[in-house]
Computed example of a mutant assay.
Amino acid sequence: MDQGDEPPSVLWGLDPVFSAFARLYVKDLLQIQESCQVPGIYLYNSHPIYKVDVLGTVVYKREREDFFCYGGNVAAINLDVTTRETLGEYVTSCQWSNSDLLRHQVMDDGTGVINCLCWKNEKWKESDDPVVPRASEQPETGCFDPLAELKKLREAQRKRSQLEIGDTLRVRGPVKTSRQQREIMASTFYKVNDPVMAEQIAWMLEVPELYRKCYDKPFQLQANTTSGPTVGRVTRATHILKDFLKKKTVTKFRPYDVLDLLQPLVCSQAQTKPEDQLSDQASVAGPSTGQQLRQLLKESLQVLQDEGAVYRKVKSEDELYHVTEQDKDLLIAVKDTIREDSKREKYAEKGCHVLHILSAVRQRYSPNISKEALQLVLKTLECNSDIISTSNSHYTMFS
């Protein structure tokens, strides 16, 4: 990727992926290119990435007396370390302290194999276990013993940090390129106890969703800088409407009922414009204050509909909006749907899927119910203990 194709580095902070641990597939970590502007930063679909979160299986391990070396096939880094002195020189060249135990392990997530550099502090060694107190200092039977609990904690840490081939490993840390090979410098790593593969299945369901909603969409900035105030004004208008509907517990309304609430936003923008801009508008005909107010209300109501906060039960010339969380008829319709269909043999064990509930509510109540509105209703019913979620997308009646 040429430097001209990269977003400016000063704008990377605007991308939420930059400050998060990106959950990318290993094959993409091996293929992403390093930034031409800042070494150590990699770009996937113009998203700046420097730290990742990966789940995989350990495929190679080698252990020595005073350090661990994990590797795997051609993806492993060949340390060529045979003596303690050579290891010390390698550790020093990598700017790690000699008091750390170096660990190399290669993990495979099904898409590729990548090397992970992990280290463990010497305080986890057996020699650093707490000293057993004298009999006179030992606590009475049944009392809390902090030294014994600390020893158990260190033992648990030791077991979670020592992995065998076939163990499931989760690693978090920055991506590096060493000796022309891609690797992860683990800042956090631990063994995942996953006997029934529940963690791996959840991971395989979550990562493709992140790709679809985030990673596969290129990082883009608004080309028109003048749109900034407009976007900010719509956001403020949306918050004003939300606060009004919540405080007044409004169940339904029409646009002209809330039009005056947004009047200060349009007036304040006109007052803050420079005099030369006002003079230019006087000579060039533009939208009037009323037109701007109606346009602002239209955009704000569209945002509320996209979020599912409001909906129109019947689309007609009479624009009547229903507040989703305050619509008792909608809550009853969703609850009745779950109660009736949960009795069917198909949904008796796991409950009704959210898409099935959505289809049933659209048929029985209103075809204009969005998935976002249904999610708000399900959340409200679950908070009221009317229903219970058996998974991320299945619901049944609370018994």
Rank of each mutant, 00 (worst) to 15 (best):
G71W: 00
L55G: 01
R103T: 15
L55H: 00
L79I: 00
H47W: 03
N73P: 15
Q37I: 13
G72Y: 11
G56W: 09
F67P: 00
N45D: 06
M107A: 11
S97P: 02
S93M: 09
V91H: 09
G88M: 14
C69V: 08
D80F: 04
R64C: 08
E126I: 04
G88Q: 13
W119T: 15
T141Q: 15
K123L: 13
K61G: 07
P39G: 08
C36R: 13
C69I: 14
P39V: 06
G88E: 14
S46R: 11
S136W: 02
M107G: 07
Y44C: 10
Q37S: 15
R84M: 11
V52W: 02
Q95I: 05
P48L: 01
Q37M: 15
G71S: 05
W96Y: 14
I41A: 01
G40C: 06
G40A: 07
Y44R: 01
V81W: 00
A76H: 09
L102N: 02
I49T: 11
D80V: 00
D109R: 04
F68A: 11
D66L: 15
R134P: 06
K51D: 04
L79R: 06
D53K: 05
L117R: 11
I41C: 10
R62A: 14
D53F: 08
D129V: 02
Y42N: 07
P133S: 08
Q95W: 10
L102H: 02
M107W: 06
T86V: 12
E140W: 01
Y90I: 02
K123Y: 13
G72I: 03
S136P: 00
N121A: 12
G40D: 07
S97Y: 07
W119Y: 13
Q138V: 01
T86A: 15
D129N: 14
V106M: 01
Y42V: 08
P130G: 11
S97V: 08
E140Y: 05
D66W: 11
N78Y: 04
R84G: 01
D53I: 04
L87H: 09
N121I: 05
P130L: 12
Y70T: 13
G71V: 02
K51Y: 04
Q37F: 12
H47P: 08
S93A: 15
Y90N: 02
H47I: 12
T82Y: 03
E85C: 01
P130K: 07
S93W: 10
Y50P: 01
R103N: 14
Y44A: 06
D109E: 03
I114L: 11
N121M: 10
Q105D: 12
Q37K: 12
V74W: 12
V81D: 02
G112L: 05
Q95R: 13
D66T: 13
L101W: 09
C118E: 14
D66V: 10
F68Q: 12
